[in-house]
């Protein structure tokens, strides 16, 4: 794939009446580089191309994007994983307003994250040292705390597309369960009662796009299942 054909979504609100796809030829010198490397090569051809990036190693969550129809992080996605027939199609994450090119407005996504009160709540006095937690209890947080807020899951979720203001979405619910599962958190009741409505949790239809696309291999659907169980137990 020495000469890669890339088709990329372009939109600049100051100059473009509507978004369009622009074609690029990118010389990758035959190497199986990451999609983010390709974007940097493209930006050298056209400096007006806008995308977010920071850590370039899959831990900061800046460069979530849609690559040949699949959400993922550009920096840890090698071309060999996504390119079909020598062609790469890059689009912004679906379902969120586009600010420019691949840069989306994540306000709604962050709002749903903030809604679940993503911080430990504990009304007991703080000990002089750390709160103790057994390795088994700590293990309950594995697969939950590692979320990088890249939005690959929520923007692949039809329920979130439909109700981004009312359905918390897989990323927010994964974090909600991260605190429900934490033995150090004492706000379980309040957290559950904040989710007791037909939309916040129950709009999840088990489509599992979130699981398919999480670049960290996390499983929001399982976490949502656990929240449902807690909500149902709480209601009875």
């Amino acid at each position: 794939m020495s000469n890669l054909q890339v088709s990329i979504y372009r939109y600049n609100p100051e100059t473009d009446a509507a978004p369009y796809m622009q074609e690029f030829q990118v010389d990758t010198k035959g190497r199986d580089v990451m999609v983010l490397d390709v974007l940097h090569l493209m930006k050298e051809q056209d400096s007006s191309l806008a995308f977010r990036r920071s850590c370039r190693e899959g831990v900061c969550g800046s460069d979530g994007m849609n690559m040949n129809g699949r959400n993922g992080l550009g920096c840890i996605t090698p071309l060999s994983e996504v390119v079909k027939n020598g062609k790469l199609v890059l689009r912004p994450l679906p379902g969120l307003p586009v600010i420019r090119d691949l840069v989306v407005d994540m306000a709604m996504f962050y709002k749903q994250y903030e809604r679940i009160q993503p911080y430990l709540q504990n009304d007991e006095p703080e000990p002089a040292i750390e709160r103790l937690q057994s390795p088994e209890d700590r293990e309950k947080l594995d697969g939950l705390y590692e979320c990088i807020l890249c939005a690959c899951c929520s923007t692949a979720c039809p329920s979130f597309w439909w109700n981004p203001d009312k359905f918390v979405g897989p990323a927010g619910l994964l974090q909600s369960y991260r605190f429900l599962a934490d033995t150090r958190d004492t706000a379980t009741r309040e957290r559950l009662s904040d989710l007791q409505d037909p939309f916040s949790v129950f709009r999840c239809r088990g489509i599992m796009n979130c699981v398919a696309f999480c670049p960290k291999g996390l499983n929001p659907t399982r976490a949502i299942g656990k929240i449902r169980e807690m909500l149902l137990a709480d209601a009875t």
């Binding site: 850590c55 900061c60 969550g61 800046s62 990088i148 807020l149």
Partner: peptide, 9 residues
């Protein structure tokens, strides 16, 4: 950058 994209991460 959005704070959790800072290099401390």
């Amino acid at each position: 950058v959005f704070p959790t994209r800072s290099h401390t991460v």
